[in-house]
């Protein structure tokens, strides 16, 4: 479904991505794990088109989208739940969800909103409240719900468990697993390597802008190098 070849990106003179190759097949849940500063967010920004590239190409459903505008990528079916949730704080929960349909418009908005509310009942309770007043976990649910409103083919998740209490982390990972079961293709970026690799079909390990390991989720979990570098300390 998506393929990335030789992706390079800089912040000024700092090279944040040094030739990334990876792919995500339709229906897969692929995890990308790596320490803080490895370049995970930069990669997701590049996939959504909001990060300037100095080299490489991104293919989506057989088409080269390297130069496609960010807004048009959403139209193609790539949605991102960005790091730090990034909800529209002063707008209501419901308005945040409606904005998720911006590229799609379509007639079933009310129905889709209900679907998100079924998945996250707390959002229904707070539907008229400003998104900024929600707790971190609730904002994460809202950010995920908002991305789902666009009917994405590929969902990019940037550290959805960051800063959440263990119970909430579990709930978020359960949600991600459910979404995969419903057929959404997912690219999950996490520092929480254990949890992410445990639910992933395949995984990549990113270190200072380079993919250093790849394999089945379960194999990476069992890999000694991965264990030593990421699983012990996290």
């Amino acid at each position: 479904m998506m393929e990335v070849r030789g992706l390079i990106s800089h912040y000024g003179r700092i090279q944040a991505l040094s030739g990334i190759d990876l792919r995500v097949e339709a229906g897969e849940l692929v995890a990308l794990v790596g320490a803080n500063g490895a370049g995970k967010t930069t990669l997701l920004r590049a996939l959504s088109g909001v990060q300037p590239l100095s080299g490489g190409a991104i293919w989506f459903e057989g088409a080269d989208i390297t130069r496609t505008k960010p807004a048009d990528r959403v139209g193609l079916g790539i949605a991102q739940v960005p790091e730090g949730r990034q909800v529209f704080g002063p707008l209501s929960v419901e308005d945040n969800l409606k904005l998720g349909t911006y590229r799609r418009r379509g007639p079933n908005v009310a129905q889709d909103i209900e679907r998100v509310y079924t998945q996250f009942p707390i959002l229904k309770e707070k539907r008229q409240q400003a998104a900024g007043t929600l707790s971190g976990g609730q904002q994460q649910m809202l950010a995920i719900g908002r991305a789902l409103m666009s009917h994405p083919k590929l969902l990019l998740l940037d550290e959805p468990s960051m800063g959440l209490a263990p119970l909430l982390v579990e709930e978020i990972f359960r949600t991600v697993t459910e979404l995969k079961k419903e057929g959404t293709t997912i690219f999950l970026v996490e520092q929480n390597a254990t949890a992410a690799l445990a639910i992933a079909d395949r995984g990549y390990v990113l270190e200072t802008g380079k993919v250093v390991l790849e394999g089945k989720g379960a194999d990476l979990l069992a890999n000694d190098e991965v264990k030593a570098a990421y699983l012990g300390g996290v």
Partner: peptide, 23 residues
């Protein structure tokens, strides 16, 4: 209107607005 809310959303968080597909 969604168009009006999109303009507000852009003022609150341009990055997130782009990720919603707002130009």
């Amino acid at each position: 209107t969604l168009e009006g809310k999109a303009m507000l959303a852009t003022s609150f968080n341009p990055l997130a607005a782009q990720l919603m597909g707002i130009n």
